[in-house]
Amino acid sequence: MVWVTWITRGVCAAVAATGFVCAAAQAGTAEPPAPVTVQDLHRVLTPALPGTYGDDIAVVILGYGLTPEGTLRAELIRRLRAGFVQAVFAPWSPIIVTGGNPQAGLTEADAMADWLVAAGIDPARILRDPHADSTVANARNTAALMAEHHLRAAVLVTSDDHVDRARAAFDDAGVLVVGELTPDLTPWPALPLRIDQFGPALPPA
């Protein structure tokens, strides 16, 4: 629809003003793969922007089960995309990827780390917990990693329907949580956005 195209372009201009670059279709190119909805526009106009943090605060991305072939499921990619943006906004923060449950010889943590490295994250920033098999284990293992590396607090990145349970588990494990970010509350997984101005192109979803 014509009005959707013009609204999309207007939203893209607004988003670009904040530092993001919109990959909405230009004249003579293909339309975006999915129509922009009112909910998508609301996410852009009222986004939950990542915070900026120092080198003593970890960005913790929680795992999600791999396929039997050892590949990333769509929900885990959404978490990784949100985590990547948070990592760009907090370039001094270490990144903890937590998740075991190996499939085809690959753990969630290792698959997540591979994705982040492919997206341009320095491997030296990534701390791996390849043993956790539950949210409680995510929290306990992350607490141990944080203590080992003298990290005082964490920003949790997980799915919207999981964040409350994750927060409770991390609280119980003694981890100070200073922020949360979910793909559902951010615009970039929902609209055809690129973040070229903040870092390299993301791997394909």
Rank of each mutant, 00 (worst) to 15 (best):
3 W>Q: 13
6 W>Y: 12
10 G>S: 07
10 G>A: 10
12 C>Q: 13
15 V>D: 09
16 A>S: 15
21 V>N: 03
22 C>K: 02
23 A>W: 09
23 A>Y: 05
27 A>E: 11
29 T>P: 00
32 P>S: 04
34 A>V: 14
35 P>G: 10
36 V>M: 15
41 L>N: 03
46 T>S: 13
56 D>C: 00
58 A>Y: 01
61 I>L: 08
63 G>Y: 03
67 T>G: 05
68 P>E: 13
70 G>M: 07
71 T>W: 01
71 T>H: 08
75 E>T: 13
76 L>T: 09
79 R>H: 08
81 R>A: 11
83 G>P: 01
87 A>Y: 05
89 F>Y: 11
90 A>C: 02
92 W>A: 15
95 I>N: 05
98 T>Y: 02
99 G>R: 01
102 P>G: 05
104 A>S: 14
105 G>W: 03
110 D>M: 11
111 A>T: 09
113 A>I: 09
114 D>R: 14
115 W>N: 06
115 W>D: 02
116 L>N: 05
118 A>N: 07
119 A>P: 05
120 G>Y: 05
125 R>H: 03
127 L>Y: 08
131 H>S: 12
136 V>E: 15
138 N>A: 03
140 R>F: 05
143 A>F: 07
144 A>R: 15
146 M>D: 04
149 H>W: 12
150 H>D: 14
154 A>E: 04
158 T>L: 03
163 V>Q: 02
164 D>A: 15
165 R>L: 00
166 A>D: 04
168 A>W: 04
169 A>F: 09
173 A>E: 04
176 L>Y: 01
178 V>N: 04
178 V>Y: 01
182 T>E: 00
186 T>E: 15
187 P>K: 04
191 L>V: 15
194 R>N: 10
195 I>R: 11
195 I>T: 14
196 D>E: 12
197 Q>F: 13
197 Q>W: 11
201 A>Y: 04
